[in-house]
């Protein structure tokens, strides 16, 4: 897999993770451009459909980023998101896709460093794992 540039989708909640991403910008902290952010009001809004669809359409890794535990703007949306992510990880394993392609992260809005760190580490992890097996399957089918 030379020159493999993973595609990472990051679903970020408005109040914390999306703001942390802006904070990373304000502080000019660089992280890999592979990460593309989709904004949601709350991490609890991100449904299994969205995560699965991203993987199905060719994303190599997906993560959901919400507020720190106990700090969710909507009280408990982040804990629901975390439950959903762990459910999806199991589901993926069952169908032969590595569960680690999907993760949940939490951070406060001020944690620009953490946002950049998470984006970098996750991208590197996926880079090492190689492309989403769905893509390999699609290639084989051709």
């Amino acid at each position: 897999m030379e020159n493999f540039e993973p595609i990472i989708v990051a679903f970020c909640c408005h109040y914390c993770a999306y703001t942390a991403a802006d904070m990373a910008g304000s502080k000019r902290l660089s992280y890999p451009p592979n990460v593309k952010i989709i904004k949601a009001p709350c991490s609890g809004k991100i449904d299994a459909i969205h995560i699965m669809q991203a993987l199905q359409k060719g994303a190599d890794g997906v993560y959901v980023a919400g507020c720190l535990e106990g700090d969710c703007h909507f009280k408990s949306g982040n804990t629901r998101a975390a439950q959903r992510v762990s459910y999806i990880k199991k589901l993926l394993e069952e169908i032969g896709i590595e569960g680690e392609r999907v993760e949940m992260f939490t951070m406060s809005a001020g944690m620009g460093e953490r946002f950049a760190e998470v984006a970098t580490e996750f991208t590197e992890k996926i880079r090492k794992m190689g492309p989403n097996p769905i893509k390999r399957a699609a290639k084989a089918a051709c």
């Binding site: 595609i7 449904d47 459909i49 969205h50 991203a54 359409k57 994303a59």
Partner: peptide, 26 residues
């Protein structure tokens, strides 16, 4: 559906981002 964040709007963003991703690999 949550107004402004409807499922098809979120999916449309995923589709737009990943347009051709599978083919590019193939």
């Amino acid at each position: 559906q949550l107004m402004r964040f409807e499922d098809d709007q979120l999916c449309a963003q995923i589709d737009a981002l990943l347009y051709g991703a599978l083919e590019r690999m193939a």
